[in-house]
Amino acid sequence: MVPQAGQHSGSRGQLRSNKVPEVTVYFWIIKVLCTTVGETAADLLNEKAGLGLTGVSVLMSALLGVVLVVQFRSSAYRPGVYWSAVALISVVGTLISDNLTDNMGVPLEASTTVFAIVLAVVFAVWHRRERTLSIHHIDTTSRESFYWLAVLFTFALGTAAGDLVSERIDLGYWLSAVLFAMAIAAVAIAHFALDLDAVLSFWIAYILTRPLGASIGDYLSQPTSNGGLDLGAVVTSALFLAVILGLVTYLSVTRRDVAEPEHPSGYAA
């Protein structure tokens, strides 16, 4: 489907710049780093804040809400705001899964299945309404809403599925990271060599980066007795946040992840 010029305005929001970055190597590096921070920060806050899992979840959800308001009100992609939202949504997605498992006793098999179904429903409704799942045209309030909802549930699904795999297979943090990295590499090969659909490839890889980042974070932060390097959650979180800040600053200056504006008639299904 290729809408005519001006067709994409009205009730779905005014036509504007794409609100998300181009998918480059920087995108995937920062995504994994944000995922790692999401894992270590969630653990750190749960252990040190004294608010309990529920209290931390409420606090982080409120912070995420504030950042998303700023993101939605922005007229174009702003690296600092966008990646702040991703980092916070990584923490919140992790906490959603942890609350179901630890506070409500929901088996990981059940939560993984439910999150997969909810994510599938989000994609189905998104496609039915917009006729595309392309992340190259997140340029209306409607599309941006579906985008962030999908991102939230990819983090929740990735958390539950990653915990399920690690508990069932018990490979340890380092081997788990290698396993998920190989799975992402397989998706990349399927896309570039076997023409696997670009949208499907993107979202599968997006989900898999969550357990990959969590495995890396646990490997660095957990005690040596548990198979980690014992850097601690504080050091690991600070280290990765520093790298994220450096990369986001670089992208803000160079705009290496900003696509050239398209004419409205260039929209593809």
Score class of each variant (00 low, 15 high):
residue 186 A to I: 02
residue 268 A to R: 13
residue 226 N to A: 15
residue 158 G to E: 05
residue 195 D to L: 07
residue 251 L to S: 00
residue 1 M to T: 09
residue 90 S to H: 01
residue 37 V to D: 00
residue 161 A to D: 06
residue 21 P to H: 04
residue 180 F to P: 06
residue 34 C to A: 04
residue 2 V to S: 10
residue 258 V to C: 05
residue 208 L to F: 07
residue 264 P to Y: 05
residue 118 V to Q: 08
residue 123 F to T: 04
residue 130 E to W: 05
residue 46 N to E: 13
residue 33 L to V: 01
residue 134 S to Q: 07
residue 120 A to G: 12
residue 95 L to Y: 04
residue 166 S to T: 10
residue 106 V to S: 04
residue 147 Y to A: 08
residue 246 G to R: 01
residue 47 E to I: 09
residue 259 A to L: 10
residue 163 D to K: 14
residue 244 I to T: 00
residue 127 H to R: 11
residue 66 V to I: 14
residue 160 A to Y: 06
residue 101 T to N: 12
residue 139 D to R: 15
residue 1 M to E: 10
residue 173 Y to G: 09
residue 205 A to P: 01
residue 154 T to F: 09
residue 65 G to F: 13
residue 211 P to R: 02
residue 162 G to R: 09
residue 69 V to Y: 14
residue 204 I to W: 07
residue 239 L to H: 02
residue 226 N to W: 09
residue 268 A to F: 12
residue 223 P to C: 08
residue 41 A to H: 03
residue 190 A to H: 07
residue 94 T to K: 00
residue 178 V to S: 08
residue 108 L to M: 08
residue 132 T to C: 13
residue 176 S to L: 10
residue 144 E to C: 10
residue 132 T to E: 14
residue 160 A to S: 15
residue 171 L to E: 11
residue 251 L to Y: 00
residue 14 Q to W: 12
residue 205 A to N: 03
residue 220 L to F: 11
residue 53 L to Y: 03
residue 79 P to R: 06
residue 37 V to S: 02
residue 48 K to P: 04
residue 42 A to L: 03
residue 176 S to R: 06
residue 18 N to M: 07
residue 196 L to S: 08
residue 89 I to K: 00
residue 37 V to W: 02
residue 102 D to C: 03
residue 23 V to F: 03
residue 22 E to I: 05
residue 91 V to A: 00
residue 253 V to R: 08
residue 83 W to G: 09
residue 129 R to V: 15
residue 230 D to S: 14
residue 108 L to G: 07
residue 100 L to I: 03
residue 83 W to M: 10
residue 250 Y to P: 01
residue 222 Q to W: 05
residue 240 F to S: 01
residue 185 A to M: 11
residue 135 I to A: 07
residue 14 Q to E: 15
residue 146 F to H: 13
residue 76 A to E: 15
residue 128 R to L: 10
residue 261 P to R: 11
residue 231 L to M: 15
residue 38 G to W: 02
residue 19 K to M: 15
residue 206 Y to K: 06
residue 239 L to T: 14
residue 75 S to L: 12
residue 112 T to S: 15
residue 252 S to T: 14
residue 80 G to T: 12
residue 244 I to V: 03
residue 219 Y to G: 07
residue 245 L to M: 14
residue 185 A to P: 05
residue 193 A to L: 12
residue 209 T to V: 15
residue 162 G to N: 12
residue 3 P to F: 08
residue 17 S to L: 13
residue 54 T to G: 05
residue 169 I to Y: 12
residue 12 R to G: 13
residue 2 V to T: 13
residue 267 Y to K: 08
residue 183 A to I: 07
residue 28 W to D: 05
residue 183 A to K: 00
residue 55 G to K: 04
residue 67 V to W: 12
residue 99 N to G: 04
residue 26 Y to R: 02
residue 178 V to K: 09
residue 195 D to F: 10
residue 56 V to C: 05
residue 198 A to M: 06
residue 263 H to Q: 14
residue 263 H to N: 13
residue 209 T to R: 00
residue 27 F to N: 03
residue 217 G to H: 01
residue 19 K to Y: 09
residue 156 A to Q: 06
residue 87 A to M: 14
residue 249 T to Y: 12
residue 151 V to N: 09
residue 152 L to I: 11
residue 248 V to M: 08
residue 40 T to I: 00
residue 19 K to A: 15
residue 140 T to E: 13
residue 250 Y to I: 01
residue 151 V to W: 08
